[in-house]
Design a protein around this nucleic acid. Sequence first.
RNA 1: GUGCCUGUAGCUCAAUGGCAGAGCGCCUGACUGUGGAUCAGGAAGUUGUGGGUUCGAGCCCCAUCAGGCACCCCA
Length: 434
Amino acid sequence: MSIQNIKGMRDHLPRAMLLRQYIVSTIQQISERYGFEPLQSPVVEYAELLEGKLGDDEKLIYRFADQGGRQLALRYDQTVPLARVVAQYAGQLALPWRRYAYGPSYRGERPARGRYREFYQFDADIVGSASPLADAEIVALLSDSLAALGFPDFVTLLNHRQLIGGIARVSGLDEAAAGSVYRAIDKFDKIGADGVREELLRSGVVPTAAAAILTLVQTEGEAGAVLNELAGHLASDERACAAIANLRAIIAALENLGISPARYTVAPRLARGLSYYTGLVFEAITPHWPEGSLLGGGRYDELIGQFAGRPIPTVGLAFGIDRLHDVMEQLNLGPRSNGTAVAFVTIFGPEQSAASMALAQALRKAGINTLLSLEPQISLGKQLKEADRRGARYALLLGPDELARGEVVLKDLRSGEQHSLERAQLIEVIRASA
RNA sequence: GUGCCUGUAGCUCAAUGGCAGAGCGCCUGACUGUGGAUCAGGAAGUUGUGGGUUCGAGCCCCAUCAGGCACCCCA
């Protein structure tokens, strides 16, 4: 028997978990501020439910049979399960429905930094609305969340599927060629203009078309200006014009929601691989994470309704918690606490342990996270060392002198200062510093 | 899934095919009512695992597991 974890699946020790919980609770708090409601569904689904949605990626699905011979699979993302839930509980869910979901998904990929076989996502989607306000609310949620997590300089790149489609069409390409065009364009930030040109030519795009695509795709600047320029080039393509109008409406909504224009830009080069996107697509990037996007999302108007048998327009995003964790660790963002306790109650000796236990319970009753020493015999010095190591802000000491006076010594482990206080005062002081 | 690199103390890393090492952390003491800083001492290893070559393997070869990078794809 080998004592080790499965490839691409990680254990998260307390220090890492504290950061992960901070990330998740921050995003959850903001999602609820936007009125999103929680959903949880099983990690296991019938295999056939997940099949036929991913194309080539289906080989990455973890499949197995249970003891009853059922063909099952671990969920690949939280979007297909959402589609099932929406179809199955149609009568109970009033649309539009804003839902968030947090949990693991599984893909049998080759692991790398920021990329795992078991990975945790926090999804937020607005189900059942085609309104550009829905798109804007999702982008606003993204922007508020990254800001709350402390990212100093992220930017959300916005694009529209039919904008890329239009660029391909006015360059003389048909729908069949569009797939390889998307993939080539998507690598723009990684391989540069020349690299994209090479890829386009290799996949059969004629040089004049490749040149046209590259020009349009590199349009940059303030969102409105980019759209105006693209509108000039794409006037002959009806769907592209509609896409531009849609992006204008989304951007107007972002302005009305007070999202800083420095936080987003229109980037025609953004493609995103997932095939089910139908409208807006977006990605948040930061210069400190060259490996790629922090997170992304978009509008997918066909996927959610396919089990329900009618189109249900949906827009959403997925926060990759593992990736956010890795980036924040690298950038030294977020809390760096060693534990959950604020106070550490020492035990002077066996005769004083009852008093210490009573004090610990009093603090806990007052809502203060409190560790109680477990070893009355060991020296005070070691108990203080333990308090320090567990990240407690305060140590409480009560020896014979304090007990005789009915007081407790409160030692601030950060400053080293200590005072002898009465119990009521004690709780006030600790609460005031929290 | 394909190609390349890596795996040595709890952590970060040294060690021409010839005695298994350092820093940090940990433990003990200086300090029997006070943590961090300093000083002194100490414990710590089947060199990822299994085979092979060799008088001799941490080092070379094969397999396997895990991690990283590039494809691919994406969170």
